[in-house]
């Protein structure tokens, strides 16, 4: 039975990996990677790594892939254009490289002196790979790695926001109207209304969500000109 599941998961995983590399549309490549990750989680389960399989499905196939799907939707999942120079030569070199790497890795696996490689692995003990055991290891032996990972995640989140923010084009804050200003009848206003700097909040321009400044507009037009 475990042989059947092994071959099922392995074939789906390898097919998913080939799909990621071969499909031209990035959106389909992401979906193919999701299939690959699910199959890989099955392989992890066969290796008795329950918690890692769970994290793989929730974190990888769930969260990270949703991020990918959003970015593909944002930048437009156009097919890759075909260039004159990336013909069979480049693909051939890459294939030869990948094939040689595979042969080399297989030789390394076969030639290694590890006797246990032929076996099914160490005898299974209850609780191996369970969340309890992983958590205990994280909070005792690998406490430093755990803390470093949390700081790394924080830095990556801040870095992504800094990298992807709008720059150059300054965002003009739209004039906000408070609730009291909105409810107040015209003519019963403040000093500012009397001297004409504020019209009682009635004829304010409609708040716009995204006002591009002059510089930003110039950049946009320059970019458009370059494209044409």
């Amino acid at each position: 039975m475990s042989e059947f599941f092994y071959f099922l998961c392995a074939i789906v995983a390898i097919a998913g990996a080939i799909g990621v590399v071969a499909l031209r549309n990035p959106f389909y490549a992401v979906l193919s990677l999701v299939c690959h990750l699910f199959a890989l989680a099955g392989l992890f389960l066969l290796l008795r790594a329950e918690f890692v399989a769970f994290a793989q499905v929730v974190v990888y196939a769930g969260a990270v892939m949703v991020l990918y799907v959003f970015v593909v939707g944002y930048i437009g999942g156009d097919d890759e254009s075909v260039r004159p120079w990336d013909g069979p030569a480049q693909k051939g070199v890459a294939l030869v490289f990948a094939g040689m790497l595979f042969v080399e890795l297989c030789l390394a696996i076969l030639g290694s002196g590890l006797k246990a490689l032929d076996g099914e692995g160490a005898p299974y003990q209850a609780g191996f790979g369970s969340p309890g055991q992983i958590g205990e290891l994280f909070l005792t032996t690998f406490l430093f790695a755990f803390e470093a990972a949390s700081i790394l995640l924080l830095i990556a989140a801040v870095g992504a926001v800094v990298l992807a923010r709008r720059r150059g084009a300054g965002r003009v804050e739209a004039d906000r109207m408070t609730f009291t200003e909105f409810m107040r009848p015209i003519g019963t206003g403040t000093t500012a209304e009397a001297v004409g700097t504020r019209d009682g909040g009635i004829n304010l321009p409609a708040p716009t969500t995204d006002v591009v400044s002059e510089r930003g507009r110039e950049q946009l037009e320059a970019g458009r000109g370059e494209r044409q």
Partner: peptide, 24 residues
């Protein structure tokens, strides 16, 4: 299944990924 089989699948996925980085 012996551990070798899993390692071979791992090597194959790694090579496919490396080929993809080179071509795409």
């Amino acid at each position: 299944m012996s551990i070798e089989w899993y390692l071979v699948v791992s090597a194959m996925i790694f090579c496919i990924g490396a080929g993809g980085v080179l071509t795409r």
